[in-house]
Design a protein around this nucleic acid. Structure first.
Length: 120
DNA sequence: CTCGTGACGGGGG
DNA sequence: TCCCCCGCCACGA
């Protein structure tokens, strides 16, 4: 049963992105980390590249630097930042936002794997 | 099948 | 602080 085997892997990313509430953002690496094996920031970014702006709030996905990496693709780079600002996300003069306040994690994925020893 | 590229991340200078 | 290099997986030609 292939049906949408390949497509499935994309929807994994979309599904997570759709869970991102307004005023919050996620990084490509964060999403890749949640999906786990086989997923990297590169792959997530590529998948987002084919995301439907009608079905997926792609604008809430930024890089680990807290900036919009849309570059000069089909979308204006400043557009993403403008949308996020409209949702309440504050951006720095350098185009960066406070991930400590805007970065969001879906419930259930907050605990990836507890690390009992910190100094060990 | 092989090669290069791409919405990235992290480390080093 | 910024700039550069390497690694990562998926996909188009």
């Amino acid at each position: 049963m292939k049906i949408a085997d390949e497509q499935s892997y994309r929807e994994r990313v979309y599904e997570i992105v759709r869970q991102i509430p307004s005023g919050r953002v996620m990084t490509y690496g964060q999403i890749a980390e949640i999906l786990g094996e086989g997923y990297t920031a590169r792959t997530v970014g590529y998948v987002m590249h084919g995301a439907d702006s009608e079905s997926v709030p792609w604008q809430r996905v930024i890089n680990a630097q807290g900036k919009c990496s849309t570059a000069k693709m089909t979308l204006p780079a400043n557009l993403q930042q403008s949308i996020l600002e409209s949702e309440g996300v504050k951006f720095d003069d350098s185009g960066r936002c406070d991930l400590s306040s805007t970065l969001w994690t879906p419930a259930g994925y907050e605990e990836v794997d507890e690390e009992p020893s910190l100094f060990n």
